[in-house]
Design a binder for these strands. Sequence first.
DNA 1: ACCTGAACACCGTTCAAGT
DNA 2: ACCTGAACACCGTTCAAGT
Lengths: 211, 211
Amino acid sequence: MSRGPDTRDAIVVAALAYADEHGIDSLTLRGLGRATGLHHTAIYRHFRSKEEILNALFEQIAAESMASLGEVPTDPGERIIAIALALRAGLHEHPAVAGAYLQPEASIADSLPARQLQGLILSSLSELGLEGHALAQRYQILESYVLGATAFDFSGAPAHLESRRQRHRMADGQDLEAESRETDTIDLLNEEAFALGLRTLVSAFTRDAQP
Amino acid sequence: MSRGPDTRDAIVVAALAYADEHGIDSLTLRGLGRATGLHHTAIYRHFRSKEEILNALFEQIAAESMASLGEVPTDPGERIIAIALALRAGLHEHPAVAGAYLQPEASIADSLPARQLQGLILSSLSELGLEGHALAQRYQILESYVLGATAFDFSGAPAHLESRRQRHRMADGQDLEAESRETDTIDLLNEEAFALGLRTLVSAFTRDAQP
DNA sequence: ACCTGAACACCGTTCAAGT
DNA sequence: ACCTGAACACCGTTCAAGT
Protein backbone atom coordinates (compact mmCIF):
# COMPACT_ATOMS: atom_id res chain seq x y z
CA MET A 1 0.00 0.00 0.00
CA SER A 2 1.40 3.36 -1.04
CA ARG A 3 1.57 6.09 1.53
CA GLY A 4 0.83 9.76 1.22
CA PRO A 5 -2.20 11.46 -0.26
CA ASP A 6 -3.04 8.53 -2.58
CA THR A 7 -3.76 6.27 0.37
CA ARG A 8 -7.34 7.44 0.47
CA ASP A 9 -7.87 6.58 -3.19
CA ALA A 10 -6.17 3.24 -2.71
CA ILE A 11 -8.55 2.44 0.16
CA VAL A 12 -11.55 3.32 -2.03
CA VAL A 13 -10.31 1.09 -4.87
CA ALA A 14 -9.63 -1.78 -2.47
CA ALA A 15 -13.02 -1.36 -0.80
CA LEU A 16 -14.73 -1.40 -4.20
CA ALA A 17 -13.00 -4.65 -5.17
CA TYR A 18 -13.71 -6.14 -1.76
CA ALA A 19 -17.42 -5.28 -1.93
CA ASP A 20 -17.71 -6.60 -5.48
CA GLU A 21 -16.19 -9.91 -4.47
CA HIS A 22 -17.65 -10.53 -1.03
CA GLY A 23 -20.75 -8.34 -0.90
CA ILE A 24 -21.20 -5.04 0.90
CA ASP A 25 -22.08 -6.67 4.22
CA SER A 26 -18.73 -8.45 4.35
CA LEU A 27 -16.88 -5.19 3.91
CA THR A 28 -15.48 -4.63 7.39
CA LEU A 29 -12.75 -2.30 8.51
CA ARG A 30 -10.68 -5.23 9.72
CA GLY A 31 -11.09 -7.00 6.37
CA LEU A 32 -10.34 -3.82 4.48
CA GLY A 33 -7.26 -3.31 6.61
CA ARG A 34 -6.07 -6.80 5.72
CA ALA A 35 -6.73 -6.14 2.00
CA THR A 36 -4.77 -2.90 2.03
CA GLY A 37 -1.97 -3.86 4.41
CA LEU A 38 -3.08 -1.16 6.84
CA HIS A 39 -4.01 -1.66 10.44
CA HIS A 40 -7.76 -1.35 10.57
CA THR A 41 -7.66 1.62 12.92
CA ALA A 42 -5.25 3.43 10.61
CA ILE A 43 -8.08 3.84 8.13
CA TYR A 44 -9.50 6.49 10.45
CA ARG A 45 -6.61 8.72 9.38
CA HIS A 46 -8.30 8.92 5.96
CA PHE A 47 -12.02 8.53 6.70
CA ARG A 48 -14.05 9.82 9.58
CA SER A 49 -16.24 6.70 9.63
CA LYS A 50 -17.25 3.62 7.68
CA GLU A 51 -20.23 5.56 6.36
CA GLU A 52 -17.81 8.00 4.75
CA ILE A 53 -16.13 5.10 2.96
CA LEU A 54 -19.47 3.91 1.58
CA ASN A 55 -20.28 7.41 0.37
CA ALA A 56 -16.85 7.54 -1.28
CA LEU A 57 -17.63 4.31 -3.14
CA PHE A 58 -20.73 5.82 -4.69
CA GLU A 59 -18.84 9.01 -5.43
CA GLN A 60 -16.15 7.01 -7.21
CA ILE A 61 -18.71 5.17 -9.36
CA ALA A 62 -20.56 8.37 -10.17
CA ALA A 63 -17.28 9.97 -11.21
CA GLU A 64 -16.37 6.98 -13.40
CA SER A 65 -19.81 7.12 -14.99
CA MET A 66 -19.50 10.82 -15.69
CA ALA A 67 -16.06 10.26 -17.23
CA SER A 68 -17.34 7.47 -19.47
CA LEU A 69 -20.05 9.73 -20.83
CA GLY A 70 -17.81 11.60 -23.24
CA GLU A 71 -19.73 13.59 -25.84
CA VAL A 72 -23.23 14.23 -24.57
CA PRO A 73 -26.27 14.19 -26.95
CA THR A 74 -27.67 17.58 -27.91
CA ASP A 75 -31.29 16.43 -27.71
CA PRO A 76 -32.26 16.94 -24.06
CA GLY A 77 -34.34 13.74 -23.87
CA GLU A 78 -31.54 11.62 -25.30
CA ARG A 79 -29.12 13.39 -22.98
CA ILE A 80 -31.13 12.34 -19.93
CA ILE A 81 -31.22 8.77 -21.19
CA ALA A 82 -27.49 8.74 -21.88
CA ILE A 83 -26.66 10.06 -18.42
CA ALA A 84 -28.98 7.63 -16.65
CA LEU A 85 -27.69 4.65 -18.64
CA ALA A 86 -24.09 5.66 -17.92
CA LEU A 87 -24.79 5.71 -14.18
CA ARG A 88 -26.67 2.43 -14.45
CA ALA A 89 -23.70 0.89 -16.29
CA GLY A 90 -21.33 2.13 -13.61
CA LEU A 91 -23.42 0.55 -10.89
CA HIS A 92 -23.78 -2.61 -12.98
CA GLU A 93 -20.02 -2.99 -12.78
CA HIS A 94 -20.18 -2.66 -8.99
CA PRO A 95 -23.58 -4.08 -8.10
CA ALA A 96 -22.74 -4.53 -4.43
CA VAL A 97 -22.48 -0.76 -4.04
CA ALA A 98 -25.90 -0.12 -5.57
CA GLY A 99 -27.67 -0.63 -2.26
CA ALA A 100 -25.15 1.29 -0.19
CA TYR A 101 -26.67 4.70 -0.89
CA LEU A 102 -29.90 3.54 0.68
CA GLN A 103 -28.28 3.18 4.09
CA PRO A 104 -30.03 5.44 6.62
CA GLU A 105 -26.89 7.55 7.04
CA ALA A 106 -25.93 7.86 3.39
CA SER A 107 -25.66 11.33 1.90
CA ILE A 108 -24.79 10.73 -1.71
CA ALA A 109 -26.21 14.05 -2.81
CA ASP A 110 -23.38 15.94 -1.13
CA SER A 111 -20.74 14.61 -3.48
CA LEU A 112 -19.52 16.61 -6.43
CA PRO A 113 -20.19 13.97 -9.14
CA ALA A 114 -23.73 13.47 -7.84
CA ARG A 115 -24.29 17.21 -7.99
CA GLN A 116 -22.99 17.30 -11.56
CA LEU A 117 -25.29 14.47 -12.63
CA GLN A 118 -28.21 16.18 -10.92
CA GLY A 119 -27.40 19.47 -12.64
CA LEU A 120 -27.25 17.82 -16.06
CA ILE A 121 -30.64 16.16 -15.61
CA LEU A 122 -32.23 19.35 -14.29
CA SER A 123 -30.97 21.50 -17.15
CA SER A 124 -32.07 18.86 -19.67
CA LEU A 125 -35.59 18.82 -18.22
CA SER A 126 -35.56 22.59 -18.34
CA GLU A 127 -34.56 22.47 -22.03
CA LEU A 128 -37.50 20.17 -22.68
CA GLY A 129 -39.68 23.08 -21.58
CA LEU A 130 -40.51 21.99 -18.05
CA GLU A 131 -40.35 24.38 -15.10
CA GLY A 132 -41.37 24.87 -11.49
CA HIS A 133 -43.51 22.19 -9.91
CA ALA A 134 -43.77 20.08 -13.07
CA LEU A 135 -39.98 20.07 -13.41
CA ALA A 136 -39.45 19.17 -9.75
CA GLN A 137 -41.87 16.27 -10.04
CA ARG A 138 -40.27 14.87 -13.18
CA TYR A 139 -36.81 15.20 -11.69
CA GLN A 140 -37.94 13.35 -8.59
CA ILE A 141 -39.44 10.54 -10.67
CA LEU A 142 -36.20 10.10 -12.60
CA GLU A 143 -34.00 10.20 -9.51
CA SER A 144 -36.15 7.69 -7.66
CA TYR A 145 -36.45 5.44 -10.70
CA VAL A 146 -32.79 5.44 -11.71
CA LEU A 147 -31.32 5.06 -8.24
CA GLY A 148 -34.18 3.14 -6.64
CA ALA A 149 -34.80 0.57 -9.35
CA THR A 150 -31.06 0.04 -9.73
CA ALA A 151 -30.60 -0.49 -6.00
CA PHE A 152 -33.50 -2.92 -6.05
CA ASP A 153 -32.29 -4.77 -9.14
CA PHE A 154 -28.79 -5.22 -7.78
CA SER A 155 -29.61 -5.72 -4.11
CA GLY A 156 -28.26 -8.95 -2.80
CA ALA A 157 -25.17 -8.67 -4.97
CA PRO A 158 -23.18 -10.68 -5.78
CA ALA A 159 -25.96 -13.29 -5.58
CA HIS A 160 -28.68 -10.97 -6.89
CA LEU A 161 -29.18 -12.62 -10.26
CA GLU A 162 -29.89 -16.04 -8.81
CA SER A 163 -32.55 -14.71 -6.46
CA ARG A 164 -34.08 -12.69 -9.28
CA ARG A 165 -34.14 -15.82 -11.43
CA GLN A 166 -35.99 -17.71 -8.73
CA ARG A 167 -38.44 -14.85 -8.33
CA HIS A 168 -39.29 -15.12 -12.00
CA ARG A 169 -39.52 -18.87 -11.95
CA MET A 170 -41.88 -18.56 -8.98
CA ALA A 171 -44.46 -16.87 -11.19
CA ASP A 172 -45.59 -20.24 -12.48
CA GLY A 173 -48.41 -20.50 -14.97
CA GLN A 174 -47.77 -16.94 -16.06
CA ASP A 175 -45.57 -17.53 -19.09
CA LEU A 176 -42.41 -16.41 -17.36
CA GLU A 177 -40.68 -19.78 -17.29
CA ALA A 178 -39.08 -19.24 -20.67
CA GLU A 179 -37.56 -16.03 -19.34
CA SER A 180 -36.06 -17.57 -16.24
CA ARG A 181 -33.72 -20.26 -17.49
CA GLU A 182 -30.36 -18.61 -17.07
CA THR A 183 -29.03 -15.86 -14.88
CA ASP A 184 -27.50 -14.31 -18.01
CA THR A 185 -30.97 -14.07 -19.47
CA ILE A 186 -32.23 -12.44 -16.29
CA ASP A 187 -29.41 -9.95 -16.36
CA LEU A 188 -30.27 -9.03 -19.94
CA LEU A 189 -33.98 -8.81 -19.12
CA ASN A 190 -33.15 -6.54 -16.18
CA GLU A 191 -31.11 -4.14 -18.27
CA GLU A 192 -33.60 -4.15 -21.15
CA ALA A 193 -36.44 -3.51 -18.74
CA PHE A 194 -34.60 -0.67 -17.04
CA ALA A 195 -33.86 1.02 -20.37
CA LEU A 196 -37.43 0.55 -21.56
CA GLY A 197 -38.85 2.04 -18.38
CA LEU A 198 -36.46 4.96 -18.64
CA ARG A 199 -37.36 5.67 -22.27
CA THR A 200 -41.05 5.38 -21.44
CA LEU A 201 -40.74 8.02 -18.73
CA VAL A 202 -38.59 10.42 -20.76
CA SER A 203 -40.88 10.13 -23.80
CA ALA A 204 -43.88 10.98 -21.67
CA PHE A 205 -42.08 13.94 -20.09
CA THR A 206 -41.17 15.22 -23.55
CA ARG A 207 -44.81 14.96 -24.61
CA ASP A 208 -45.97 16.66 -21.36
CA ALA A 209 -43.71 19.61 -22.09
CA GLN A 210 -45.17 20.15 -25.57
CA PRO A 211 -47.78 22.96 -25.79
CA MET B 1 -46.15 -9.97 26.35
CA SER B 2 -48.63 -12.73 25.67
CA ARG B 3 -47.34 -16.27 25.34
CA GLY B 4 -48.32 -19.00 22.97
CA PRO B 5 -48.66 -18.89 19.22
CA ASP B 6 -49.36 -15.12 19.17
CA THR B 7 -45.90 -14.37 20.48
CA ARG B 8 -44.53 -14.33 16.97
CA ASP B 9 -47.10 -11.78 15.84
CA ALA B 10 -46.48 -9.70 18.94
CA ILE B 11 -42.78 -9.63 18.15
CA VAL B 12 -43.50 -8.49 14.59
CA VAL B 13 -45.79 -5.70 15.80
CA ALA B 14 -43.24 -4.56 18.37
CA ALA B 15 -40.43 -4.69 15.82
CA LEU B 16 -42.49 -2.60 13.41
CA ALA B 17 -43.14 0.06 16.05
CA TYR B 18 -39.50 -0.03 17.13
CA ALA B 19 -38.22 0.41 13.57
CA ASP B 20 -40.68 3.22 12.88
CA GLU B 21 -39.55 5.09 15.95
CA HIS B 22 -35.80 4.50 16.02
CA GLY B 23 -34.94 3.49 12.45
CA ILE B 24 -34.19 0.05 11.12
CA ASP B 25 -30.51 0.16 12.10
CA SER B 26 -31.41 0.62 15.76
CA LEU B 27 -33.60 -2.46 15.71
CA THR B 28 -31.45 -4.93 17.65
CA LEU B 29 -32.46 -8.19 19.22
CA ARG B 30 -31.53 -6.88 22.64
CA GLY B 31 -33.62 -3.76 22.14
CA LEU B 32 -36.48 -5.79 20.75
CA GLY B 33 -36.25 -8.09 23.74
CA ARG B 34 -36.50 -5.09 26.05
CA ALA B 35 -39.51 -3.78 24.11
CA THR B 36 -41.33 -7.10 24.29
CA GLY B 37 -40.31 -8.18 27.78
CA LEU B 38 -38.57 -11.22 26.35
CA HIS B 39 -34.98 -12.17 26.85
CA HIS B 40 -33.26 -11.39 23.59
CA THR B 41 -32.22 -14.98 23.03
CA ALA B 42 -35.79 -16.17 23.56
CA ILE B 43 -36.69 -14.55 20.26
CA TYR B 44 -34.88 -17.42 18.56
CA ARG B 45 -37.74 -19.67 19.65
CA HIS B 46 -39.91 -17.79 17.12
CA PHE B 47 -37.48 -16.71 14.40
CA ARG B 48 -34.52 -18.50 12.95
CA SER B 49 -32.58 -15.25 12.53
CA LYS B 50 -32.84 -11.49 12.51
CA GLU B 51 -33.16 -11.64 8.74
CA GLU B 52 -36.34 -13.68 9.18
CA ILE B 53 -37.75 -10.92 11.39
CA LEU B 54 -37.05 -8.31 8.72
CA ASN B 55 -38.73 -10.45 6.09
CA ALA B 56 -41.71 -10.83 8.42
CA LEU B 57 -41.97 -7.04 8.69
CA PHE B 58 -42.32 -6.68 4.94
CA GLU B 59 -44.73 -9.60 4.86
CA GLN B 60 -46.85 -7.90 7.52
CA ILE B 61 -46.95 -4.64 5.58
CA ALA B 62 -47.75 -6.41 2.32
CA ALA B 63 -50.59 -8.25 4.05
CA GLU B 64 -51.95 -5.01 5.54
CA SER B 65 -51.76 -3.38 2.11
CA MET B 66 -53.59 -6.30 0.50
CA ALA B 67 -56.28 -6.15 3.17
CA SER B 68 -56.76 -2.40 2.73
CA LEU B 69 -57.34 -2.90 -0.99
CA GLY B 70 -60.94 -4.03 -0.67
CA GLU B 71 -62.84 -3.98 -3.95
CA VAL B 72 -60.37 -4.05 -6.82
CA PRO B 73 -60.99 -2.05 -10.05
CA THR B 74 -62.16 -4.05 -13.05
CA ASP B 75 -60.02 -2.11 -15.51
CA PRO B 76 -56.65 -3.90 -15.49
CA GLY B 77 -54.61 -0.69 -15.74
CA GLU B 78 -56.48 0.91 -12.85
CA ARG B 79 -56.11 -2.34 -10.91
CA ILE B 80 -52.32 -2.24 -11.25
CA ILE B 81 -52.31 1.37 -10.08
CA ALA B 82 -54.57 0.61 -7.12
CA ILE B 83 -52.40 -2.32 -5.99
CA ALA B 84 -49.18 -0.38 -6.33
CA LEU B 85 -50.56 2.64 -4.49
CA ALA B 86 -51.87 0.42 -1.69
CA LEU B 87 -48.42 -1.10 -1.20
CA ARG B 88 -46.83 2.34 -1.38
CA ALA B 89 -49.27 3.58 1.26
CA GLY B 90 -48.46 0.61 3.50
CA LEU B 91 -44.75 1.33 3.25
CA HIS B 92 -45.42 5.05 3.75
CA GLU B 93 -46.85 4.16 7.17
CA HIS B 94 -43.69 2.22 8.01
CA PRO B 95 -40.98 4.01 6.04
CA ALA B 96 -38.14 2.49 8.03
CA VAL B 97 -39.03 -0.93 6.66
CA ALA B 98 -38.96 0.24 3.04
CA GLY B 99 -35.24 -0.33 2.77
CA ALA B 100 -35.18 -3.63 4.62
CA TYR B 101 -36.08 -5.72 1.62
CA LEU B 102 -32.96 -4.50 -0.14
CA GLN B 103 -30.72 -6.24 2.37
CA PRO B 104 -28.45 -8.75 0.63
CA GLU B 105 -30.14 -11.65 2.44
CA ALA B 106 -33.74 -10.54 2.04
CA SER B 107 -36.12 -12.85 0.25
CA ILE B 108 -39.40 -10.99 0.21
CA ALA B 109 -40.67 -12.85 -2.82
CA ASP B 110 -41.07 -16.05 -0.81
CA SER B 111 -43.85 -14.63 1.34
CA LEU B 112 -47.49 -15.33 0.59
CA PRO B 113 -48.67 -11.69 0.42
CA ALA B 114 -45.85 -10.83 -1.96
CA ARG B 115 -46.83 -13.73 -4.16
CA GLN B 116 -50.45 -12.58 -4.16
CA LEU B 117 -49.46 -9.04 -5.13
CA GLN B 118 -47.21 -10.39 -7.86
CA GLY B 119 -50.01 -12.63 -9.17
CA LEU B 120 -52.45 -9.73 -9.30
CA ILE B 121 -50.05 -7.56 -11.27
CA LEU B 122 -49.15 -10.36 -13.67
CA SER B 123 -52.77 -11.25 -14.42
CA SER B 124 -53.61 -7.56 -14.91
CA LEU B 125 -50.78 -7.15 -17.41
CA SER B 126 -52.02 -10.28 -19.14
CA GLU B 127 -55.52 -8.81 -19.34
CA LEU B 128 -54.07 -5.71 -20.95
CA GLY B 129 -53.01 -8.01 -23.78
CA LEU B 130 -49.34 -8.46 -22.95
CA GLU B 131 -47.64 -11.85 -23.03
CA GLY B 132 -44.27 -13.60 -23.03
CA HIS B 133 -41.19 -11.42 -23.15
CA ALA B 134 -43.12 -8.16 -23.37
CA LEU B 135 -45.10 -9.10 -20.26
CA ALA B 136 -42.00 -10.14 -18.32
CA GLN B 137 -40.30 -6.86 -19.16
CA ARG B 138 -43.27 -4.74 -18.09
CA TYR B 139 -43.66 -6.70 -14.88
CA GLN B 140 -40.00 -6.21 -14.09
CA ILE B 141 -40.25 -2.47 -14.69
CA LEU B 142 -43.21 -2.17 -12.34
CA GLU B 143 -41.64 -4.30 -9.61
CA SER B 144 -38.36 -2.39 -9.75
CA TYR B 145 -40.12 0.97 -9.87
CA VAL B 146 -42.64 0.34 -7.09
CA LEU B 147 -40.28 -1.35 -4.64
CA GLY B 148 -37.08 0.40 -5.73
CA ALA B 149 -38.32 3.96 -5.88
CA THR B 150 -40.17 3.49 -2.60
CA ALA B 151 -37.10 2.12 -0.88
CA PHE B 152 -35.11 5.03 -2.25
CA ASP B 153 -37.71 7.64 -1.29
CA PHE B 154 -38.00 6.38 2.27
CA SER B 155 -34.41 5.39 2.89
CA GLY B 156 -32.97 7.15 5.86
CA ALA B 157 -36.27 6.92 7.71
CA PRO B 158 -37.26 8.39 10.08
CA ALA B 159 -35.10 11.33 8.97
CA HIS B 160 -35.62 10.77 5.26
CA LEU B 161 -37.76 13.82 4.58
CA GLU B 162 -35.23 16.24 5.98
CA SER B 163 -32.44 14.83 3.83
CA ARG B 164 -34.69 14.88 0.80
CA ARG B 165 -35.55 18.49 1.53
CA GLN B 166 -31.88 19.40 1.62
CA ARG B 167 -31.28 17.53 -1.62
CA HIS B 168 -33.89 19.68 -3.30
CA ARG B 169 -32.65 22.88 -1.79
CA MET B 170 -29.19 21.95 -3.06
CA ALA B 171 -30.37 22.32 -6.65
CA ASP B 172 -29.95 26.07 -6.45
CA GLY B 173 -30.73 28.23 -9.43
CA GLN B 174 -32.94 25.53 -10.82
CA ASP B 175 -36.34 26.73 -9.62
CA LEU B 176 -36.62 24.08 -6.93
CA GLU B 177 -36.36 26.41 -3.96
CA ALA B 178 -40.10 26.98 -3.85
CA GLU B 179 -40.56 23.22 -3.62
CA SER B 180 -38.17 22.71 -0.76
CA ARG B 181 -39.50 24.86 2.06
CA GLU B 182 -41.14 22.29 4.27
CA THR B 183 -40.74 18.60 4.79
CA ASP B 184 -44.51 18.27 4.45
CA THR B 185 -44.24 19.75 0.98
CA ILE B 186 -41.47 17.31 0.13
CA ASP B 187 -43.55 14.40 1.36
CA LEU B 188 -46.44 15.51 -0.84
CA LEU B 189 -44.14 16.03 -3.82
CA ASN B 190 -42.72 12.56 -3.29
CA GLU B 191 -46.10 10.87 -3.26
CA GLU B 192 -47.38 12.91 -6.21
CA ALA B 193 -44.27 12.13 -8.19
CA PHE B 194 -44.50 8.42 -7.42
CA ALA B 195 -48.13 8.29 -8.54
CA LEU B 196 -47.39 10.29 -11.69
CA GLY B 197 -44.50 8.00 -12.62
CA LEU B 198 -46.66 4.96 -12.00
CA ARG B 199 -49.52 6.27 -14.14
CA THR B 200 -47.07 7.22 -16.88
CA LEU B 201 -45.70 3.68 -17.02
CA VAL B 202 -49.08 1.95 -16.90
CA SER B 203 -50.53 4.24 -19.59
CA ALA B 204 -47.63 3.45 -21.87
CA PHE B 205 -48.00 -0.30 -21.23
CA THR B 206 -51.69 -0.06 -22.06
CA ARG B 207 -50.84 1.69 -25.31
CA ASP B 208 -48.12 -0.86 -26.11
CA ALA B 209 -50.60 -3.70 -25.74
CA GLN B 210 -53.04 -2.17 -28.24
CA PRO B 211 -52.87 -3.66 -31.74
C1' DA C 1 -42.39 -26.06 25.67
C1' DC C 2 -40.43 -22.10 26.78
C1' DC C 3 -37.06 -19.07 29.04
C1' DT C 4 -32.42 -17.74 31.15
C1' DG C 5 -27.50 -16.60 31.63
C1' DA C 6 -23.13 -16.97 30.15
C1' DA C 7 -20.26 -17.18 26.46
C1' DC C 8 -18.35 -16.82 21.52
C1' DA C 9 -16.78 -14.53 17.67
C1' DC C 10 -17.38 -10.78 15.77
C1' DC C 11 -18.37 -5.38 14.86
C1' DG C 12 -17.13 0.15 14.58
C1' DT C 13 -14.69 3.33 17.11
C1' DT C 14 -11.43 5.63 20.48
C1' DC C 15 -7.05 6.72 22.33
C1' DA C 16 -2.64 6.58 24.60
C1' DA C 17 1.68 5.08 23.08
C1' DG C 18 5.02 4.44 19.73
C1' DT C 19 8.08 5.88 15.22
C1' DA D 1 2.46 12.75 10.14
C1' DC D 2 1.31 8.31 10.32
C1' DC D 3 0.80 3.75 12.49
C1' DT D 4 0.07 0.34 16.41
C1' DG D 5 -2.11 -2.34 20.14
C1' DA D 6 -5.25 -2.65 23.56
C1' DA D 7 -9.59 -1.63 25.01
C1' DC D 8 -14.72 -0.24 24.97
C1' DA D 9 -19.33 -0.89 24.10
C1' DC D 10 -21.75 -3.04 21.31
C1' DC D 11 -23.65 -6.86 17.77
C1' DG D 12 -26.09 -11.73 16.24
C1' DT D 13 -26.01 -16.25 17.60
C1' DT D 14 -25.33 -20.68 20.30
C1' DC D 15 -26.09 -23.73 24.04
C1' DA D 16 -26.15 -25.92 28.48
C1' DA D 17 -28.95 -25.25 32.32
C1' DG D 18 -33.09 -24.18 34.43
C1' DT D 19 -38.70 -24.27 35.05
